[in-house]
Amino acid sequence: MNLTTFYLAVAGLILAPLLGGLAAGVDRVVTARLQSRMGPPLLQPFYDVGKLMSKVIAPASQWQGLFVRWALVASLASDVLLAAGGDVLMCFFIQAASACFVTLGAFSGSSPYSKLGAQRELFQMLSYEPVFLVCVLCMAKASGGFDAYSMMGASAQPLLFKMPLIIPGLVFVLLIKMRKSPFDLSACHHGHQELVRGVYTDYAGRDFALLEIAHWADVVVILWICSFLWATGPLQMLVVALIALFVVILIDNISARLTWRHMVKVAAPVALLLATVNLLWLYLE
């Protein structure tokens, strides 16, 4: 590991949560504007986390603090790995570990809403993980390596043209990971949730604030991987990430929540099938 990689890794550690928080702020503002409202200040997510940090509340289970910290470390580690040009598959697996810890914490909680949220979170993981893996495999095949740098600097021609069919898959993954309609099954950003706050119900105060930071880090990882689709330069990647963010916000605002059965039986297979067809196509070429 050389010094540049080290600086990039540190930058990833510090910048990723900040960018994720900003993305969440953009999300709040854009959503409000789509609903003809003013919306909160851009930095509102940071105020929210700051507020949660300073709250005093008893934990719902002795295990939750532990799992929250493990989840946060895993999420940040996946950011750092990506920034340091590490293996994208491993980065994905580490991020999956973060989601698993959140789920385990929800399982160990005391509220039935938390446990129901955990069950749904599991089915969400079941739905998006294979889709996302196949999308990454497509990128790896087209760029000739599993590490982030080779995907980012693959060729002058953007990867997008070789893999148009993974776009629905990536949007599907983003919707689930960002907890947006129609797949905000296990927890939702808004108040209108039949499971109260789903997996997040029992997390509160500082634990919840740390979980929110982990969530920002996760969103950055996924958006970053999406931006590999047009990795001809940093600006282009940023534009791709912003477009992806906007598409997700738009879908969130125009769709209603589906059931988990629909997600597992219809949405995930369709997304997976399209991505697989794309993968096979890349191999046959």
Partner: peptide
Amino acid sequence: ERFGIINVGNPR
């Protein structure tokens, strides 16, 4: 929401 207010369903 201009004031950062969110309606939540969970006392925690």
